[in-house]
Design a protein around this nucleic acid. Structure first.
Lengths: 336, 336
DNA sequence: CTGAAAGCGCTAACAA
DNA sequence: TTGTTAGCGCTTTCAG
């Protein structure tokens, strides 16, 4: 640790620590000449303020946390960029925390935040999340939290989402139009709002065409690739297999493609596929993948902007700030 | 911020703050009964220790930083998982910082660390990095740093790398064996050690077959997708275009594929492609992509383990701990 | 086994 | 315009 402190500077310059502190903050109370001298000395000695001391004192850390299930996902990596673009303007640090879809881990992380480690939190919740006391605890302790994409419905705060229901509908409609008779919806978790909304939209699309749906149309996948692989393989091996698939999250896409490859199912001839995904490689897959692409960067940026409003104005009402930003359908060969 | 402090607990229990502090640390100086009472009260009041206070006092934060160019890259996202798996065991927090390949940003981040924000740093450097004073400054101020994958050659510390030279050689050799006459190497930066080592390996492979190489075989790409796209398009449109491509980083793959698609160049018929990549979608690309796959998770885990050794034993000699973990070649259709 | 007290580095009243 | 001083919450001697 660097041992140049404000005190060192003060001694060298024969002024008080208060003067140095204020000078470094460019306070109007301090004379221009003094500021100059302080700044120069700080530069010279390579002074770096101690984050812990100032945070302890000010009860602010100029840091926000982004809590995510994982980072190996185009949506999240783009959202992070959106968040950072805003945070940087505001002079805030962004710390990324990964839950690996583990509820306990998420709980621990949020609990830790109660210590004031960060000033605010942006979160996309894990699939395992069921009860949300830890989120409420965090809010009670005064740390604002804004959700994006994967929200907790029952928490009162700002939620930035995309038009999940509508997109589920669009996906279902497209596959029907392309002639699918038996469509399966790959869900990632039955306790996840986005997954359910997308599934509901899908059901509605079928219902509107008077096609009866059954719970078996929803295939529950897990956070376990090899499980998903064998599960899907079994389903797609069946003689009454689906001829259309809606993948509700990006990571399921690769699995579906690999299973089809192994079973010699041709896409889109034998089975059509559409995926909720921000994969840049969508156009170069074999065949190119029809996607519903979320406005990931923008969702991150908007979520961050709203959080900063709350950080800047203490009494700010977050719950009135929810927002829905639409996704777009990009048709490619996998649904031709 | 939570306002339950050690003092609150002390008052409630009619003991001193020192006792509470020690009890919470399970110190042997404290009686079992007292510990019990303290723990129970802490639980009851939902006490969360203030990170800033304890870090300020102990001059330790139980936190490490991972500094990366970006996160939308399979290599880095896997490496993060490796790092986290180790950090978790050690009870350390992991903060992820993104440089977006921006040297200035990296400098700022490292400078910030001099304040003792983190106890140690794991880093893969940006492509723009040229001078490394800021790294040295950090080391001088007592924060250990371990490099992985993209290292700074001239810094004395542990460096976890893969066999880049050898893999460049293998890639070149494979393309030659498959009949390529004119191979281009897509470099991401001429100041990046891994890129250069891979390029050197490639050159050696050609030299060993008495094939003369020219600097024009190395195509310098940037951190700018649209630039890379048009640059590559120009090169591949030329009548004397390459018939084999080695992409030195994952992100260039999509661009190459898209350009080939637009120019109606068939892979592998007209042009063969091999990429340094950890993409899970490699097998389902059109055509499936031959890759050199790095041991990303392991590299992250090893780098973290070594950093923790340094954190646990103050006088630890990091520079003697460098390590090379080999990558593997996976042949697929793009080089058939 | 427990407590009193000093102080980590910084900020912000308040005084001068 | 500058300085004095009292803490932020916690850890850690040292004394009891």
């Amino acid at each position: 640790m660097n041992n140049i402190t404000i005190k060192t500077l003060a001694e060298r310059l024969q002024v008080s620590v208060a003067t140095v502190s204020k000078a470094l903050k460019d306070s109007h109370e301090i004379g221009e000449l003094t500021k100059q001298r302080v700044r120069q000395m700080a530069e010279e000695l390579n002074y770096v303020p101690n984050l812990y001391a100032s945070s302890l004192r000010r009860r602010k850390s100029k840091t926000i946390a982004v809590v995510l299930p994982e980072v190996a996902d185009s949506y999240f990596s783009l959202a992070i960029n959106g968040i950072e673009s805003i945070a940087q303007k505001k002079g805030y640090h962004v710390l990324i925390y990964l839950t690996h879809e583990n509820y306990r881990k998420q709980e621990e992380i949020l609990k830790d935040f109660q210590s004031g480690r960060v000033d605010g939190v942006l979160m996309s919740t894990t699939t395992e999340t069921t009860d949300h006391c830890h989120v409420v605890d965090l809010q009670i302790s005064g740390v604002p939290i804004v959700f994006f994409d994967r929200v907790c419905e029952d928490i009162e705060t700002a939620k930035i989402t995309t038009n999940d229901f509508e997109c589920g509908y669009i996906a279902g409609e497209l596959l029907l139009k392309q002639g699918c008779k038996k469509i399966a919806f790959l869900s990632i978790s039955s306790s996840l709002s986005i997954s359910n909304k997308r599934a509901n939209g899908f059901h509605k699309a079928l219902a509107d065409k008077n096609i009866k749906t059954s719970p078996k149309d929803i295939i529950d996948c897990k956070n376990d690739e090899s499980f998903n692989y064998s599960h899907l393989k079994k389903i797609l091996s069946h003689k009454n297999r689906p001829d259309g698939i809606i993948a509700s999250v990006e990571k399921l896409t690769t699995t579906v493609y690999l299973v089809c490859k192994e079973l010699n199912l041709r896409i889109p001839g034998d089975i059509k596929i559409i995926s909720f995904s921000n994969l840049v490689s969508a156009p170069i897959l074999n065949p190119s993948l029809t996607t519903i692409t979320q406005p990931a960067f923008e969702m991150g940026a908007v979520a961050a902007s709203i959080l900063f409003k709350a950080l800047e104005k203490p009494g700010f009402q977050l719950k009135k700030e929810s927002m829905v930003i639409p996704s777009v359908l990009v048709e490619r060969d996998s649904t031709k």
